[in-house]
Design a binder for these strands. Structure first.
Lengths: 326, 326
DNA sequence: CTGTTAGCGCCTTCAT
DNA sequence: ATGAAGGCGCTAACAG
């Protein structure tokens, strides 16, 4: 292994000068900085992270925390977020360390160990919820973290879509392009913030367009309610669903009761290949990879981008697409 | 921060004795080991990973490598594998470091950096393919790694399901329980090894049961072929699909042509909530979390389990379930 | 069985 | 602008 002393020797300088040169220390002359870097390059020098981390008292890693419980976690777009995150981390010579567990306690223990033993100082939370022990722990320890979704504390950094706007986009498309007359908003029974916001957008456009509308919660345990709802609303001709899966489920219930009727659908997340569904199925892409990218940018804004530095959040755009596909 | 010297002082021993005691070094007496550990516990001592790693020349992290390209990556069960992996890693005081990228080159660079700069010595590959630069790099550097899926080199460690058996289970269920007379095997056009193996199982049972059968590839770009196939095989009454998505897609094509007919389906991965589909839809759970767990066990078998030590692979069981759900 | 000493690779204070 | 020296926390060789 080639160390900083090796380059120092070759460059005819001391190890400390070499170290400073490689870190662009202002006290070193341009000339020697250039020389040292050139030699380091030639010799294929790569710093040892563990040594660096030990002296710095800080790891070059970001902790990425998954939500507890696979309900949410089964979402394929976590992978895309990870991919976006890592693409930005490698640029900064940082690595991606994962915290994932089945219980809140185990997860907190995982994060705590990352902080205390691993010296990790920056975190990304792939979820956001109230009274979250992880967030509280990070706040107490004054560690920088960014959540994906709406923050629960006004001081938290976050990256999110504009979900009200997304709801508007979806509903607008449904009414104007697909000429739906009686739209329904299909959500989960979890009352997620992003669902509430998309519903706001839905309601706004429906009201403006003077169409009748309604909303319904589709979850595994209220099948009869849903069927009753569909039965009582035979005029439904289109839906906005808070995710593609829920939209598809509603479609299936609907088809069961009205096999001949068809439904226009706008869902979210581009979860399916276009060919999976027969009906007029559209989906809104929320660009999870972009969310990952912006999360990292925000996470490091204290050291880097001064314009962003003041901001506490970044918004990722969305786009409706006819072609749904993996 | 509380260091090993602090406990040493308090215990009235030297730092090296304290270190050895905490690592259960055989040269230290039971008495002092117990005493040192007790004090360490009281003082809430937790070792600094970066310092440990520096002296050990090896990081307490496992590199988990994702496949390039989101086609495969969109599979939600990666999250479950991660969860299984991490549950075993925390027991060993190891952390999970992710390598994920959009190109082969970037991914290799990522892994290379983990090895050279991060001193990571153990890896898990969430895929398996021929002529893989990553695997070759790891082999060259004599690093221990386990692949999930069928290995491409006979020397590689791997964890997988018994996919022939799984194909048998699926087909058996379809024929014996669901009384299907003309089953079809639905696969992708990628010719994945696990698909070939499941097809073997399918063929075996179909032959034994003396039923007619056939197979078809369902991908996005051969819609006409599929429809032609369905049109020419009106007698189809059940399918085994290599994954739930593909099964659902086939069902939709089928319904388009024969709206009145119904189909029995056995898919894989438990990707959908039961209520998502109207027809007789079953799915085989391949227990991704178990795959993660066993992968780690195998990855550390050199230091730990002597029985497993000889083995180069571990097989995870599967189970067919009527209730499909998240 | 235990203590002393040195060193992993890097950074940083303190000199010059 | 650069060098020398010391230390981050831990482990291991060497000594007793």
């Amino acid at each position: 292994m080639i160390t900083i002393r090796d380059i120092a020797k070759r460059a005819g300088v001391s190890a400390s000068t070499a170290s400073r040169a490689l870190n662009n220390n202002s006290r070193i002359s341009e000339a020697t900085i250039k020389k040292v870097k050139k030699i380091a390059d030639e010799m294929g020098y790569l710093p040892d992270y563990n040594a660096k981390n030990l002296t710095n008292g800080e790891a070059n890693a970001v902790g990425v925390v998954f939500p507890v419980g696979s309900e949410t976690a089964s979402n394929p777009f976590f992978i895309n977020i990870l991919s976006g995150i890592n693409s930005e981390l490698v640029k900064r010579q940082y690595s991606l360390s994962v915290a994932i567990a089945n219980t809140d306690e185990a997860l907190l223990e995982n994060v705590r160990s990352m902080v205390v033993q691993g010296k990790i100082k920056r975190f990304i939370l792939l979820y956001s919820k109230f009274n979250d022990a992880i967030s509280e722990f990070l706040r107490e320890n004054k560690l920088r973290f960014v959540v994906i979704g709406q923050p629960t504390s006004s001081n938290d950094f976050y990256v999110d879509n504009n979900n009200v706007e997304a709801g508007i986009t979806a509903t607008d498309f449904l009414l104007k392009k697909l000429h739906v007359k009686f739209p329904i908003f299909v959500e989960s029974s979890n009352d997620w913030t992003y669902e509430q916001q998309r519903y706001q957008g839905f309601k706004k456009i429906s009201n403006e367009s003077l169409v009748d509308f309604d909303n319904v919660q589709v979850s595994s345990d209220n099948v009869e309610e849903i069927e009753k709802f569909i039965f009582e609303h035979p005029q439904i001709d289109g839906i906005v669903a808070t995710d593609d899966f829920r939209g598809l489920r509603f479609l299936n219930y609907f088809k069961k009761i009205y096999p001949k009727k068809s439904l226009s659908i706008v869902g979210f997340n581009k979860s399916f290949p276009a060919s999976l569904v027969q009906d007029n199925f559209h989906s809104i892409d929320v660009f999870p990879d972009q969310m990952g990218i912006k999360t990292v940018i925000l996470l490091f804004s204290d050291r880097e981008n001064q314009e962003i530095n003041i901001k506490k959040h970044l918004i990722v755009s969305h786009k409706i697409s006819d072609e749904i596909g993996f």
